[in-house]
Design a protein around this nucleic acid. Sequence first.
DNA 1: CCACAAGCGT
Length: 651
Amino acid sequence: MSLIHRRLNRFPGLSSVNAWNFQIRDAVNRNDPAESLFLFREMKRRGVEPNNFTFPFVAKASAKLAEIAYSEMVHAHVLKSPFWSDVFVGTATVDMFVKCNCVDYAVKVFERMPERDAITWNAMLAGLCQSGHTDKAFSLFREMRLNEIPPDSVTLMTLIQSASFEKSLNLLKAIHAFGIRLGVDVQVTVANTWISTYAKCSDLDSAKSVFESIDRGDRTVVSWNSMFKAYTIFGEAFDAFCLYRLMLREEFKPDLSTFINLVASCQNPETLTQGRLIHSHAIHLGADQDIEAINTFISMYSKSGDTSSARLLFDIMPSKTCVSWTVMISGYAEKGDMDEALALFHAMTKTGVKPDLVTLLSLISGCGKFGSLEIGKWIDTRADIYGCKRDNVMVCNALIDMYSKCGSITEARDIFDNMSEKTVITWTTMIAGYALNGIFLEAFELFSKMIDLDYKPNNITFLAILQACTHSGSLEKGWEYFLMMKEVYDISPGLDHYSCMVDLFGRKGKLEEALELIRNMSAKPDAGIWGALLSACKIHRNVKIAEQAADSLLNLEPQMAAPYVEMANIYAAAGMWDGFARIRSMMKQRNIKKYPGESVIQVNGKNHTFTVGERGHVENEVIYLALKSLSLFARDEHIMHKEQSYELCWV
DNA sequence: CCACAAGCGT
């Protein structure tokens, strides 16, 4: 208080409103909204009445704080003052409520304003667009036009946000066309927004053509960066790299975002070299010291399989954020090194960095993928300690997935049952869990329950339920779901769905039907689908269809050994030795080699490799004895499942 | 004495 006193007394004119106004404005501009609001209260306490300039400043401060309680207070003061009808004050209030995520309040203020100008309309429009009230936004926009408020470039930018929110290409094209027809001045910023929004709406070509339409001289580094980001979204790492070279040739200076967007396009081992080049160029230009950039580089290395480079960068970075730790942890978790991931997690909490949702989710999903049930349980019991409540839908979904992948289906179901709020993903995960664990009746039951409760299944839900059908051999049920998907939910089946159906028909020996289904597909059948048909032909010894399947398969992937081997076996089983010989010579001619499959399992951090027919492991005898008893056990299980699926025929 | 409100890429 004394500090304030001293500061206030330094301004002789502080008895006047203006002096207070400047203090309040300065605090906002210093990015100290709390101080600004404090000064406002102090001013009121001393009996100085705010004027029409005071409120917009205070509203801006409250908008920055984004606390509804403060905003309501400011609004109450506005209403009590004679300036509530002022356009500036009203617009600032609308904006304040928008920034507090209180669109309803903003609308109320907007509707009561006796006078509005273009900025008021734009502010209101932004509120509706940003909060996802797209329909309301467009009806406001129509009203705006009826009131003959000419839309400007800000209006246009605001509307683009709604297209971005809806991820609707049609909407975006409509707004783009509208902008062109209206002749709104095309500033670079507008063009840059077109680029990134086209990319978000999955239209890379339009993004490219907008970029190319900007005059060379008008392009800014943001234009280039937006293009890199676009290529990254589409996974076009090489195009991004070529564009970067062009950028340098045209003597543009890359900035931090350039590197962040550019290196983000390198996500797999094939692009590792390119990622390295970009990283070294960033070092060369001194753009490798920023924490966010380093995080992106670490992510690039670990996703490309170069964990040691990732770790090196991680270890030498001077300070680490939650993202840095999370990127490194998920690098290990995705690779299956759960022990190292967990060790790093401990180190993270020890350092005092609080894990966030992403940290937990990547750990949990790693446990599921690699069957680390113990670690998974450990994280589960501590989830709320680390700031992620166990009632968080995403955490619960991940836990259901983890438990069911580890075979603990009852624990998965327990979480499912205790969730206060479920999404389609929750249901899908649970159904997939049952399918994976061979508990098909539950999967089907859950699916109908889900529909009874008015959840709308999506393409992944249908994939899960079709997989349940495939694994239980329930052809009729599968066909029913397949039709339901198209006819009731208007979801066109993807390659995976077709693959399931081909598998189902194939296993039942209905090879003609399977082939017919493939022929009627709208999309081009992929290797998985032909492969499913081919292995079905092998079971049911149908040489004719097998030849077609193998033929299509070899057209798609001529270097893949499996179809040759499969086909050769089919010929052999049918006693067609000339066919067999033809395949063998084809393999020889095309230099196709079949490597025996390997199976790797990690025990206590050591890799153990097994190949077909090989008995070289030190503990060979124990292992194969255990394996034998397991397969006897599995046979019993199998019979049980078969009975279960017979039951289904009566349902 | 001066002045206040809207939009945009990572």
